[in-house]
Write a protein that binds this DNA or RNA. Sequence first.
DNA 1: ATAGTCCCTATCAGTTTGATATGTTACATT
DNA 2: AATGTAACATATCAAACTGATAGGGACTAT
Lengths: 139, 139
Amino acid sequence: MYTLHFLSALAIKGRGNSQKPVHLREIAEEYDIPFKFLEQIAILMKSVGLVKGTRGKTGGYQLADPPESIDLARIIRATEGEILPCADIEGGNRAVNEILREIFQEQREWIDKKLATFTLAEIAEKARQHMEPAPMFYL
Amino acid sequence: MYTLHFLSALAIKGRGNSQKPVHLREIAEEYDIPFKFLEQIAILMKSVGLVKGTRGKTGGYQLADPPESIDLARIIRATEGEILPCADIEGGNRAVNEILREIFQEQREWIDKKLATFTLAEIAEKARQHMEPAPMFYL
DNA sequence: ATAGTCCCTATCAGTTTGATATGTTACATT
DNA sequence: AATGTAACATATCAAACTGATAGGGACTAT
């Protein structure tokens, strides 16, 4: 799943008031992802409304919304659909089917809430701290 | 994923002090699962130690442990491996990789704990209530 | 006009998953 | 001991998904 890396890259690079779109080639190089592959991911992310693209020479991609408002649950839902396998089955025992559906639905909602507590902004923030190590002479 | 249905069937049928193995043919019929397919699932479940089989005329399958001790987390781990996709990527940005690994690890542990609160015994209990509707003249 | 970017579609190889088929091994009953 | 019945094992297949590659079209700042 390169999706998260792509979105993280946009969140990290698109900080502050810059607002300038980021080139895919730039990300592809820094993240060592095949360019043409990354393009697919970008298009997919655009189709689900998580990013927006600008064409032309000064074009590129940027997040469609502020990174604080994009959480893990939303991303994962957009890319993988549901998180737990749906335990629903054609045929199967009716009663068991219903019970499992109930249980899994409840679990999914729980997981969703938990995943929603993490946003792209936090990921970007942590990654920045990681990349720019604190000065040695902090004092 | 028929696995859960299979295990639920064993939990429902193997109640009380019976201890008798359940025939796969019986489950296949009641749950409308292709018999030979169900056999594969049973063998797989045996290989991960969740059920045990008895051969011969009076043979069949039964849970390897009491249903109260078999929880959803254990089952899902045995059948699907990890729940969330591992966000780790060959290449990719080092910092982002590490951050994502941390976050996903934490989330996985959380989900695991949540899933571990549900056992086969509870599923079986609920399914039984569902199958044997309460008498109309309860009063 | 042109270079550089996003955008679209098709294709391919590997993996997984639902599903089928053919057999071999062990046990209980007769 | 022979037989039937069940678990056990292995191979194979088709559809779906995923990582990956390729060829071209559309748009925009310069």
